[in-house]
Each structure stands twice: as C-alpha cells, then as structure tokens.
Nucleic acid binder design. Structure first.
Lengths: 132, 132
DNA sequence: TTATATACGATAAATTTTGTCGTATATAAT
DNA sequence: ATTATATACGACAAAATTTATCGTATATAA
C-alpha cells in the first residue's frame, strides 16, 4: 500500500541519471531505457511530460535528448508527484466530493488530518534530495 | 497516488462506528454496511481479518457481531496498515529484492529515505487518533 | 535525403483492487 | 429439534487502474 507509480519511479531514475552528468550533456530516452531496463516509449512519455512541466528541457533531432532545466531544490516532492500523477491524498474525497457516503461518512475529518500530515511531509522534501 | 485501499477505509469506518457506541454493545457487519453503503460481504471479511488480528472480538450466532477488543492507542497506523495490507512502502524493493534492475538502480537509497520518513510518520499516529 | 531523436493520441495488455458466490459453522430463539 | 441469523472463509468474477505498445507526426543533424 502507498506505492508510487512506475511513472514516478522512472522519472526519478531519469532525473538522477541526468544529474550525474555534466549539465551541458543531453540524455536520450533510449540511453536511460537501455541502462535501467525500462520500456523506452513509456519512459519517453514521462520525459515529455516533465519537459512540458519545465522540469527538463527537450532537444529534438538526432543527437537530441533531455537535460535538467529546473532548480531541483525548488521543486517539492509533493509538487512533483502532483505534476505527474495528480492530486496527492489518501482518499479522493479530499479533493472531489462525489462520494455517495459523504453525508454519513464518519472518517472524513480524521483522514484529512492524515492527509495533511502526509502532504506536509512531501512538501518539505525536494527533488534535489532524491536525486543527489 | 498514495491512496489507501477500500479495505482500510472500511475498517476505519467500522472501528469509528463501534467506538461511538458503548463497548458492551455488539455491531454486526450488516448494520455498518447498511448505514455507510458498504458491500456487506467485503466488509465482513475485513472485520473477520481484524478479529483474527485481535483488534476486534467476534461473537457468533444471531444477535452476534463485533466489538473493539484492543486498546486503539497501542496500535500505530503503520502496524494497522501492515496488518491489513502487508508491507508499507513506496517501492516493493524496500522489502523484497526480486527487482531485475537492482544492480543498476540509482534511486534505491533515496527512496529508502522517503520510505523511512513515511513509515516513521505512520508509526507516530495511532488508531485512536483516527477513530475518535 | 536519410537516420535518429522527440511528441503524442489511441489502444491493448497486465495487474491490482474490489466485489460476489457458495458453503460451513456457531448459537439464540421458538 | 428446527429455524433464523450471525460469523468464517476459500474460490471466483467483475471492475478499475496501471503499465506498456502502436502508429504517426515533427524536428534536425549528418
């Protein structure tokens, strides 16, 4: 329970890989996919998403690839997770309230407390800490 | 991402419901299922599991049901989650290491740090806090 | 012009989660 | 004793989510 998704996992692996290189160098999806045994197309999509989000910069064409664009210190894990996977919470009712049991539900408030704790924890950790 | 499962959700609702009653009273699966709109059989199984774990006590026969058996203050959320759903971690490699990428993986250590933070957080919260 | 890279919507496969079925056992009430 | 109602639990099925692939388009260095 409480697993991160492969998408996030692949994204972290990619960031860490890029960070270990000189930041003038570009890294292709293929390079990472091969080295870490990750499905290339899936990784590519994740990289594209991070590029759209401004976390990395994409360069097209042969000899193209990606490199880190943002200051990883300035991106919290919470923001990172939410960029890639949407709202971060233990129950969906934390965000949208289409739960039918909502009038009867007796754990909304307590669950919100846990949620806040968890989000706070991930707000305090930055991408830099993960990838260094 | 990072959602709890329905099983855990149902278990928490049930515990909170029982806690709101006199602890000599028994509560049937049907009563809870009806009140909160939960599939009865699924809830029943969850209650049975909690009974096996000693969190609640089961009484069979007509007019039977369940009541809280353990001191909820003494059960951490981490232990509770793990009783119901098994190991609690952001990546499975934290526990079993059949990951093929394990030799190349570059985020094991950082992920373990997050894991430890998360587990520590849930270790500090007790069932009592949720259900009161 | 070719080869190789990113871009991305659509679809398929796999896995996990959620829910149901069927049957057995316990026990209070009649 | 019989009946009704509760828990117990393995096996199975449905649904939802996650993970992966396909097909096609675009960019650009060689």
């Amino acid at each position: 329970m409480l697993n991160i998704t492969r998408k996030v996992e692949y994204a972290l692996i990619a960031l860490r890989h890029m960070q270990s290189k000189n930041n003038t160098d570009l890294t292709s999806a293929k390079e990472i996919a091969t080295k870490y045994g990750i499905p290339q197309q899936l990784l590519a999509k994740t990289l594209q998403q991070m590029a759209r989000d401004g976390i990395i910069k994409a360069v097209q064409g042969p000899a193209g690839g990606y490199k880190i664009a943002a200051n990883l210190k300035s991106i919290s894990l919470k923001d990172f997770f939410e960029k890639l996977e949407g709202p971060l919470g233990m129950m969906d009712c934390y965000f949208d309230s289409e739960c039918l049991q909502i009038t009867n539900c007796n754990i909304r408030i307590p669950i919100q407390r846990i949620n806040d704790n968890m989000r706070s924890m991930f707000s305090k950790m930055t991408l830099q800490e993960i990838t260094q």
